[in-house]
Simulated assay, not measured.
Amino acid sequence: MTTHKPDVFAASSFRDAQFEPRQSTSRFIADALRAAIVEGSLLPGEPLRQDAIARQFSVSAIPVREAFRQLDSEGWVTIEPNRGASVSLQSADEAREIYEIRASLESLAIGIAIEHHTPETLATCRALLEAAANEPDPALYVVRNEQFHMSLYAPANRPRLMELIGQMHRRGERYLRVKFGLPTFKGQSDAEHEAIFEAMRARDIEAAQRLVARHLLATGELVYRFLSEAQAFAQSTHAKKRRRPAARHAATSSTGEAKP
């Protein structure tokens, strides 16, 4: 487990962001930490030093603790008594469940929204689709991706449904970055987005719902397999390292000399 890097936010897209009038300090810090996790500047399992982060933002410890609690509620950070906060480990099961939930919520939302789309809202969707397709930066892509998806559902005028979808997007950001790094993902995802948009523009509710659900469920399964395989490999490597000392001990005689 590595130690907290004092300059971890130097590469963050939030480093030069301006405070909004109604944006609280704790919210700003939480956004910056979330961005650093998505970008890979903060790694799974890495401890978050409250005092160092407070110095980084020139604030007291109170807003940092509030940011930790917010991120803990969203699954980004784990807070343990007497040990403090650390970046939550990635979970294959959580990734799959997040995308299962998204598939259900977003297929519902697009079904409601289709009949309320106008030429103007469709133009917005098209512009956001193209922005995501042309975005090479993984950290910015997760933002463009969410903007496109949310634009599909906005005309539904279901604020509570949109809030739930937004929560799932935020919980899934770090897993979307995993998928972004896999071969052929970008082109495939862009093509699926295009198909969803065309079904929506054609007012084909059944096709749009099917394509959104398929797109999200496939993402969840892909990330689930990737993380499961990575976990299995890590466990296998750890087991081999534990067996090596035992093997060396067995090869040593009771006199302390290695057996021929």
Score class of each variant (00 low, 15 high):
23 Q>H: 02
194 E>Y: 11
80 E>N: 00
153 Y>N: 06
28 F>R: 10
220 G>Y: 04
123 A>C: 02
197 F>H: 12
48 L>I: 08
21 P>F: 04
114 I>A: 04
166 G>I: 09
134 N>S: 02
73 S>R: 12
223 V>A: 05
124 T>G: 07
129 L>V: 10
9 F>E: 04
30 A>G: 10
260 P>W: 03
115 E>Q: 11
101 I>D: 12
259 K>N: 14
152 L>I: 05
77 V>G: 02
148 F>S: 00
243 R>P: 00
138 P>K: 01
5 K>S: 14
62 I>P: 07
112 I>D: 12
88 S>Q: 01
206 E>K: 13
213 A>P: 00
242 R>A: 11
132 A>T: 11
233 F>D: 13
112 I>M: 15
123 A>M: 11
122 L>P: 09
195 A>D: 10
166 G>S: 02
118 T>S: 01
227 L>R: 00
74 E>L: 01
215 H>G: 06
39 E>C: 11
100 E>H: 13
257 E>W: 12
256 G>I: 06
182 L>S: 05
159 P>S: 02
166 G>Q: 00
144 R>V: 05
117 H>E: 04
255 T>M: 06
155 P>E: 00
115 E>G: 15
244 R>D: 09
196 I>L: 06
61 A>N: 14
67 A>D: 03
35 A>K: 07
134 N>R: 11
49 R>N: 11
67 A>C: 00
75 G>W: 01
12 S>N: 01
14 F>T: 14
54 A>L: 06
141 Y>V: 07
231 Q>Y: 06
48 L>F: 02
123 A>S: 13
231 Q>L: 03
57 F>K: 04
224 Y>F: 15
252 T>A: 02
136 P>M: 04
125 C>H: 03
27 R>C: 08
257 E>N: 15
167 Q>T: 14
94 E>N: 13
222 L>V: 13
16 D>L: 13
63 P>L: 04
147 Q>F: 02
38 V>N: 10
128 L>I: 01
163 E>A: 07
174 R>M: 04
22 R>T: 13
157 N>K: 10
115 E>T: 15
241 K>W: 08
255 T>E: 07
153 Y>I: 15
164 L>I: 08
216 L>P: 05
157 N>I: 11
188 Q>G: 11
206 E>Y: 09
167 Q>I: 11
5 K>P: 15
143 V>Q: 03
64 V>G: 03
145 N>Q: 14
11 A>K: 12
204 D>T: 04
228 S>G: 08
153 Y>F: 15
205 I>F: 08
49 R>A: 12
220 G>F: 12
45 G>Y: 06
15 R>Y: 09
151 S>Q: 03
139 A>Y: 05
181 G>E: 11
